[in-house]
C-alpha cells in the first residue's frame, strides 16, 4: 500500500551527528552531542527537551554553522549550515540575549535589519510592528543596557523575526520571562506556526514544550532518549478521567458503588486543581481589567507583526 501524500522534504536533517569539544591541544573535553539523528519537517513546532548540559544549545549552534560537527552530516534548508545565503531564511534567538548595550531597542532592531536586504522604510515598519508585538513600544528609545532581563529577551525575540524567517530557531525562548511573557511567547509560537513557519525550540521547561510542540525529542547526555509527537508520548491509554460537579456525600457514595461494581476495583478520587500557571494568569487577567491604563513593565496582547507573511505568500527559496 502506497501512501497518497508525498512525504515532504525535511527542512532540517541531522544525520548521526557527534560533537566533541576539544581543548587547545586537541584533547577531548566533552562529548556534547552523540550520534544524534533527527528530521524537522515544514510547519512543525519541534521541541528539543533535555536537562542542563544535554547538548541542546550545541546542536542548535551546529545547525547555524557556528560550531563544526566532529562527525555526521547536517542539512538546513537544503544546504550546509555554513552557507551564508540560507541565513536569509533563518531567525535565531540565542540562549542569552546578545545585544549591544549602548543601542536603544529601536536602533538594535534597525542594526540587525541592516544585515539583511531590507530597505530603510521596510526596516522602520518592521521595527515598529515588532516592538508592538513584544510589548516594548513605550521603551523603544531606551538603551538596552538599562533593560531588565526579560525585556532584553523580548528584543532578542524581535530581532530573530526581523527578516520574516521561514525557519525559526529559539534557544530557551521563555527563559527570564514572567508568566504572562511566557504565555505570550507560547501563543506567538503557535501563531507563527499557523502562518506556516517551522520552529525549533529548546527548553528544559516541560510546560513550554507540552503546550506548543507537535514533535518532541528528549536529549540526555547528547543522545536521544525519546521522541515522537506530544500526544503519542504523553497519552496513558489504560485509564480515563471523569470530571463532575461536587456531589453530596450520599450521592457520591451511590456513584462510587456503581463504578466499583462495574470495574471491580477502587477508583481514585481528587479535586481537580488549576495548575499554578492557569491560576496566575487568571489573577493577572482580573487585575488587568481594572488597571489597564497605568502599566510600567512590558505589556502586549498576542498580536503578530503584520509583515510576517504566511507560508503560501512566501517566495520559495531555491537551493
Amino acid at each position: 500500500m502506497k501512501s497518497l501524500q508525498p512525504t515532504p522534504t525535511p527542512i532540517v536533517q541531522i544525520n548521526t551527528l557527534t560533537k566533541i569539544f576539544r581543548d587547545f591541544w586537541h584533547r577531548p573535553k566533552a562529548r556534547a552531542v552523540n550520534n544524534l539523528s533527527l528530521n524537522i519537517y515544514p510547519g512543525e513546532i519541534f521541541g528539543l527537551l533535555g536537562p542542563n548540559g544535554s547538548g541542546k544549545s550545541t546542536t542548535i549552534k551546529i545547525l547555524l554553522g557556528l560550531l563544526h560537527p566532529s562527525s555526521g552530516t547536517v542539512t538546513v534548508l537544503g544546504s550546509k549550515p555554513q552557507n551564508v545565503i540560507t541565513k536569509n531564511e533563518i531567525g535565531y534567538l540565542p540562549e542569552e540575549s546578545h545585544l549591544y548595550k549602548h543601542l536603544t531597542a529601536r536602533e538594535s532592531l534597525d542594526f540587525y535589519g541592516k544585515l539583511f536586504d531590507i530597505n530603510k522604510e521596510e526596516r522602520r515598519k518592521r521595527t515598529d510592528e515588532l516592538l508592538d508585538m513584544v510589548g516594548l513600544t513605550h521603551a523603544a528609545d531606551r538603551m538596552i543596557g538599562e533593560f531588565s532581563k526579560g525585556m532584553a529577551r523580548r528584543i532578542g525575540l524581535a530581532q530573530a523575526l526581523i527578516n520574516d524567517p521561514k525557519l525559526i530557531i529559539l534557544d530557551e525562548p521563555t527563559s527570564g520571562l514572567d508568566p504572562i511573557g511566557c504565555r505570550q511567547v507560547k501563543d506567538l509560537i503557535i501563531a507563527l506556526a499557523k502562518r506556516g513557519k517551522t520552529i525549533l525550540l529548546s527548553s528544559h521547561l516541560l510546560a513550554d514544550v507540552e503546550d506548543v510542540c507537535d514533535q518532541v525529542t528528549i536529549l540526555f547526555n547528547g543522545s536521544i532518549r525519546a521522541s515522537g509527537s506530544v500526544t503519542q508520548l504523553l497519552e496513558k491509554r489504560d485509564s480515563i478521567r471523569l470530571t463532575i460537579p461536587t456531589l453530596s456525600p450520599e450521592k457520591l457514595k451511590e456513584v462510587l458503588n456503581v463504578i466499583r461494581k462495574k470495574i471491580g476495583s477502587e477508583p481514585e478520587i481528587d479535586h481537580p486543581s488549576l495548575n499554578l500557571e492557569q491560576f496566575f494568569l487568571q489573577v493577572v487577567a482580573k487585575a488587568n481589567e481594572t488597571e489597564a491604563e497605568n502599566m510600567s513593565g512590558a505589556a502586549s496582547d498576542t498580536k503578530v507583526a503584520a509583515f510576517l507573511k504566511t507560508e503560501n505568500q512566501q517566495p520559495k527559496i531555491n537551493n
Binding site: 549552534k61 547555524l64 545585544l99 549591544y100 539583511f116
Partner: peptide
Amino acid sequence: RTGTASSILSKPVS
C-alpha cells in the same frame, strides 16, 4: 565572548 558575534554570524553575514 559576549556572543554578539554569534548573533551576527547567524544572519547572512560571512
